[in-house]
Design a protein around this nucleic acid. Structure first.
Lengths: 143, 143
DNA sequence: CCTTGATCCTGTAGTCGCTACAGGATGTAG
DNA sequence: CTACATCCTGTAGCGACTACAGGATCAAGG
């Protein structure tokens, strides 16, 4: 029902495709160069022409990127989702691995957050003799 | 009490400094190039010689980086922590801003985590007709 | 028909925070 | 004296883009 869905049947220029998917034109060309997107056909004037399939693939890539998958992972997902019999198990493995990464990142950031929160809370904002933030960063200049 | 503290009084080669701070040699030279570290003096043979001050600055930089400050922020913190009267308020602002970033990132990642967890849980691992992971990524190829 | 401005093309360089060489000059130990 | 470690400079690479430069082509208005 979205704009993306609306694009199903048409031949699109790169500009339209960009508008519909919200992916930057240069990024689309970049995806093509690094083989995340298939090479599109060209009009007689040399311009790229996209069909509905490309639109769906690009939407897939975009969504995957939003979920934090690397372009390498996206390539793998595309391969697995392709015509040669998707292996749900392999897809699941990629996603589960990615989930581990995300959880580790969250744990790291939360540790950080606690430390910084505590430290900033000690800041009076006035010119105290010792700034707690700088303190925690362990700087003690000789004067 | 750490190795860093032990380095207080000595003249160090870049290699020793690297060992003491745990910062890669090339990274130290890189920090110098982009003016995060001051230009060190040189021995007669042209090699860099570091004193205790550089060691402390580098330790500060490292800790800041571990806490996720950008090198730009580190430069700002170093400036503020410098001899010209540290402004605790400004330091606090940088840290508080950084804390906001961290919290936003955590919130994002947790949303992601929930979505992916739910999705992966639906995976039986067997070759189901529709893979939930690929589903959520909204790919439905025309067979 | 002509001009203007939008869109497209290729190719290259910049971003961030490093890391990894290449190719050379020294230093240190056996 | 010969290895080998360490240092030097400079450049190129990573990931995932973004931002040009310098041109070709298209669509609309006068």
């Amino acid at each position: 029902m979205s704009a993306i869905t609306a694009a199903r049947a048409e031949k699109l220029t790169i500009g339209k495709l960009s508008q519909l998917t919200g992916v930057n034109i240069e990024t689309i060309r970049y995806y093509e160069k690094i083989k995340v997107l298939p090479v599109p056909s060209r009009a007689e004037n040399g311009r790229r022409v996209y069909g509905p399939m490309e639109g769906r693939i690009l939407a897939f890539v975009r969504r995957s990127r939003e979920l934090g998958f690397s372009l390498d992972e996206v390539r793998a997902l595309l391969r697995l989702g392709g015509p040669e019999k998707a292996s749900c198990r392999e897809v699941r493995e990629i996603a589960a691995h990615h989930l581990d990464d995300i959880r580790a990142k969250i744990a790291d950031l939360r540790k950080l957050e606690r430390l910084l929160t505590k430290t900033v809370a000690q800041c009076t904002g006035t010119a105290a003799p010792k700034c707690p933030v700088l303190e925690i960063l362990d700087i003690q200049r000789s004067r």
